[in-house]
Design a protein around this nucleic acid. Sequence first.
DNA 1: CAGGATCCGGTCCGATACTG
DNA 2: CAGTATCGGACCGGATCCTG
Lengths: 141, 141
Amino acid sequence: MEAKTTDEPEEIADLCEDLCEGLAEAQENLGCELMERIAGKWPLWVLYVLAQNDEPLRFSRVHERVEGISQKVLTQTLRQLERDGLISRTLYPQVPPRVDYALTPLGHELLVQIMPLGRWITDHMGAFEAARHDFDSGKAK
Amino acid sequence: MEAKTTDEPEEIADLCEDLCEGLAEAQENLGCELMERIAGKWPLWVLYVLAQNDEPLRFSRVHERVEGISQKVLTQTLRQLERDGLISRTLYPQVPPRVDYALTPLGHELLVQIMPLGRWITDHMGAFEAARHDFDSGKAK
DNA sequence: CAGGATCCGGTCCGATACTG
DNA sequence: CAGTATCGGACCGGATCCTG
């Protein structure tokens, strides 16, 4: 019949099933949107910063810790995360105003879910770098 | 879904450790780049399409299956994925030319790693929608 | 202190035309 | 068939100024 790749067809088919059940809908609908959102440069970073502290963080503190982000984008990011229920925003009607951001259980769980992926990526960083090097040197002829 | 409010500090600290070990480097360095890359709208989609077939796919086939993508962006995406060693590109010097794309073991494993995350997202889609609704209706006063 | 409003340069993306 | 090249528009993010 058809030539198969390096893996056994069963493995692929098995993966396919899971993917069709779990990822397919996410891909073509709203989950894809979420994947993109959290996978941007800043959102995960912000969640990570909030996770490092067991207490809520003020806007300024987050701004300090997520170095490189502009105030505008940080505000946008925080709004998005709040909208998706990943963080909570608490406004203290003081003067000067004070706003605390904290991870929600949902946001916490999301980090837990993403963690193994992050670990896997770091573990295979060498493979990625090698692949890139091969590709680049191959094209630079 | 677990309905725990503010988690115990120990849990957070525990998470922190893992995050610091696994995600921190990825965040601030190259892994972050990879996270963003694969999490874009198309890359994962392309990988997913390739995973559905146990045989390599031609450019046209991929283009058909990843509906909505332009030819230009598809080319870019495929190049990226190839550069990162997630897919393989095989050129047959025919006329008309023929190019086959297939998942590499690395790309295959990446999908396996991402799957549980995708599943978790779909499982909690309701929570996300609810959070968004709450947020939107709260602001629309 | 937190963040809204504005301007503006860089980037991304789609459509089109063209090549091996 | 599988791209590359180019152009114009949309969008994104940064810097600055201003408000409660």
